[in-house]
Design a protein around this nucleic acid. Sequence first.
DNA 1: GCTTTGTTTGTAACTAGTTACAGCAACTAG
DNA 2: CTAGTTGCTGTAACTAGTTACAAACAAAGC
Lengths: 335, 335
Amino acid sequence: MVKRATIGDVAADAGVSTATVSRVLNGGAVTEATATRVWEAVARLEYTPNALTRGVFAGRSSTIGVVIRDLSSPFYLDLIRGIDEVAAANDSLVMLANTFRRVDREVAQVRTMDEQRVRGLIVTTGEATDGRTRRMAENGTPCVIIARSVLDAPPGMHSISLDNVEAGRLMAVHLAGCGRSSIGVVSSGRRTSQVERTAGLRRALADLGLPLPEDAVMVAETEDEVSGAVDTLLVRGRDRGEPLDAIVCTTGRLTVAVHAALTARGIAIPGDIAFVTMDDFPWATALGITVIAQPSYQMGLKAGELVVDRPSGPVELVFAPTLIARTSCGERQKA
Amino acid sequence: MVKRATIGDVAADAGVSTATVSRVLNGGAVTEATATRVWEAVARLEYTPNALTRGVFAGRSSTIGVVIRDLSSPFYLDLIRGIDEVAAANDSLVMLANTFRRVDREVAQVRTMDEQRVRGLIVTTGEATDGRTRRMAENGTPCVIIARSVLDAPPGMHSISLDNVEAGRLMAVHLAGCGRSSIGVVSSGRRTSQVERTAGLRRALADLGLPLPEDAVMVAETEDEVSGAVDTLLVRGRDRGEPLDAIVCTTGRLTVAVHAALTARGIAIPGDIAFVTMDDFPWATALGITVIAQPSYQMGLKAGELVVDRPSGPVELVFAPTLIARTSCGERQKA
DNA sequence: GCTTTGTTTGTAACTAGTTACAGCAACTAG
DNA sequence: CTAGTTGCTGTAACTAGTTACAAACAAAGC
């Protein structure tokens, strides 16, 4: 095992002090002749500076920490790509952690990010680590909370989310416009984003004279629970005397499962039932699925910028969703 | 901005030396009474140890570096999930970088990983950084090359890849079994994995008495080039007097584009043309697309283990592909 | 009571860098 | 010919930890 060259080795090889080598590397005042000798030594010894040591002195590392709830979701992938774009433009790297939707892992990962003295932290959604992220912000580490708005955020603590109420409204208006009136909802849980989307949907539906009964909303935590949830929705609609003519899914994570549950029952989309879901994905075009898209890449870009630019106050950014109409709600197609 | 507590602050608060605090934190010989006082001081000051400083002393950081060519690919996402799993089990984190398929970015990112003194590096495919990864391996940083086999690997340099020839063979046997004989291939480029898949396909096809002409293979570097490539393939088949009855795609990255090109021309799958592609994906079931799956999650797991376990010699792992038959090649469906 | 032994703790050197400050040479000005 | 300014470089202190070594202390054995 070959030992790596240190700044001391370079200094000895070039016949100067470590201070001079440091100045050459970081652009201080040095003679051209000295600089040349140092650069030659750097090349000769294949010297690679130690970012850890630099970080110790600077008080923080140059990497951006990202804690993701669920890496399998395309939304998060695009978000990461946005963050990574900003990181690359700032000679930074992304330190990534996946919590697999588990609270204990979220706590551990955020703690580790703090220990790593990341230059900024981007978390989704960080309910369990609110205390630590606040403290990190106070310690000078900008924290960006994705998909949750933060009450009384201290300086350096920011939030980026989607206008979920508007997302629900877009779905309602679109479905009503397609002549649907009996709607069932599959939601993934009780976190704010899910609740807001359902609330937005319900409110807009009511405004259109189409009330959404409480029992027309089913929660499915995992993909396995989706099939049963869809069944229940179908039965309840029939019992109510208003057989379902539309299903809304409030999370992109369950789109595949809901679609599969519908087709497995021989239900035609949109012939029998209309289908709208959250988050655009590459295959949606081929499948003709109408979706509410989040500008996930742009959200990642903004999150990265908040970390890099370090605005002094707390920043709260709410992005607008857009409906991408395809054929799954029985839309009239253009020729 | 509140300054973070250091080990010195904890020592002062507990009335002991920094050495004792360090021993309490890392499990050295200390009196129970002392340990209690130190832990109380840690809690009181909300002390979070600095992983950078620890890394400086240890000579390396505790994070695993991962350089990915293209984060949009589902194959890489599963790979990362596998690596992340191992990292989490070892109190480690994943430091991620995306090269966006650009060589200059790959060089920069691998260099940065080296500067970060990552505990191990996992790269796809790292052709441009072969020299540096070899040196890193010699410096004691295990490097795992994904999707490329490494010649004369030094100790600590490993490779994980798919049996690409076998993947091609599986496609050939399956298509022949479905009665297809005139096959066109869309490939994504000239890198080894692509070439091997095509070669495996061609060899197996020849063994079955179905030669694959050179001009039945088209390269499409990007999604935009796919439509034209498919056109060319179709025309050439017709000109040859053997209209295409199957299209093979040798990369998961272009599956959507090839599928879209086919359906845009009103071509029925599998009625007019059979379709097989690489890499399984969630929607493949709904769409009935037959694929060659890579055990990407397992590959990530193994990559992570190679970094954590640091086997002494070079390790070369080749994984077997599996064909997942659905309906896109005109397979007989089970009742 | 003195030596031996073992446990606990502190001092100081070490990791690999950065930087404040001082020193020294060279050049210009008076 | 001296004084002042400027520019380059080295010394040493600093970042926040870890650890080798020595010292202090108590308990046990003789």
